[in-house]
């Protein structure tokens, strides 16, 4: 099953190596041979290089606008996350994480998940990170603490992390479906069910071709038709995509129990946070 092209393998390796070295250089650590600022800049350059390699690896969407935006968001998210994990000041970390969230939301938007993009910004950027900032500011008003300026075993951590990234990239790129769809031939058609079950394929075709609507709990809905490209090419065009309504219908029919569970978790966390954070009257904590 190890069906990766040698070029990709090498690109992958270069990206991981440069990224790893860059991350290590940017980590807060003892430096004796050079100014921290210079080391940081070199690391950032290496990271940027790795991100560019990554962009070449994965390919990007076809329309030019989408391509531009996709690359901007992708590079921004990767670089911002590298800066986040290496920033000396936790406030900067939080801000870089906000950048990551915003660019991830952009990627969500490009993948047709507009609701999720807005939701992520509201929840993550608007609430969670602000709360983090709040706590950082209360607990520690300046980024000069010892433990912020000295990473714990940065070399080992970086090596571990980039081995993980490398393995993940290899697995993603060596996906059998990858070669199948990239070649565009039907030579390995038997592998198609690994991506989407044959039964479902038939159902999708029938639904979208003959009967553009179906019933969910008494409501008429249009089916989602985003399918792998080879299949999508055979479908009639122009069927509108339901967005929030479809998401809601799927969420409150197929995934009803999950939604309920999540609500319960939210409630429990609310109670738990209140209980934990409330200072005990006359207790040892102020």
């Amino acid at each position: 099953m190890f069906e990766i092209q040698p070029l990709q393998l090498i690109q992958c390796l270069i990206a991981c190596l440069s990224g790893g070295v860059g991350t290590y250089l940017m980590m807060p650590h003892r430096r004796q041979f050079a100014k921290p600022g210079l080391v940081f800049a070199i690391g950032l350059g290496l990271i940027l290089f790795a991100a560019g390699q990554l962009m070449m690896l994965g390919g990007s969407p076809t329309p030019i606008v989408s391509k531009v935006f996709f690359n901007i968001f992708a590079i921004a998210s990767v670089v911002a996350s590298a800066l986040m994990i290496t920033a000396r000041d936790p406030v900067h970390s939080a801000l870089w994480f906000a950048v990551v969230v915003l660019s991830t939301s952009g990627l969500f938007l490009l993948a047709g998940a507009g609701f999720l993009a807005a939701g992520t910004v509201i929840v993550y950027a608007g609430a969670i990170i602000v709360t983090f900032l709040f706590v950082i500011m209360l607990a520690q008003s300046e980024g000069k603490a010892v433990y912020d300026r000295l990473a714990r075993q940065p070399a080992q951590a970086t090596v571990t992390g980039f081995i993980l990234i490398w393995c993940l990239l290899i697995v993603i790129l060596s996906n059998p479906g990858n070669t199948y769809f990239q070649s565009g031939s039907n030579s390995s058609a038997s592998l198609a069910p690994r991506l989407i079950p044959a039964k479902d394929l038939v159902n999708y075709k029938r639904l979208t071709a003959t009967n553009p609507t179906y019933m969910v709990m008494g409501k008429t809905l249009t089916p989602e038709i985003t399918l792998p490209d080879t299949i999508q090419a055979t479908l009639p065009a122009g069927i509108p995509q339901p967005h929030v309504a479809g998401l809601g219908a799927a969420m409150y029919t197929t995934h009803l129990i999950s939604s309920e569970l999540v609500g319960a978790i939210l409630f429990v966390a609310l109670a738990g946070a209140v209980v934990i954070a409330t200072p005990r009257v006359g207790g040892e904590s102020s």
């Binding site: 099953m1 190890f2 080992q156 951590a157 571990t160 992390g161 081995i163 993980l164 393995c167 993940l168 290899i170 697995v171 060596s174």
Partner: peptide
């Protein structure tokens, strides 16, 4: 860290088999 390395091992097994 141990958990991350275990994930790496699993991925290696997944790719090689």
């Amino acid at each position: 860290g141990v958990a991350a390395l275990v994930v790496v091992g699993l991925l290696v097994i997944l790719v090689l088999t």
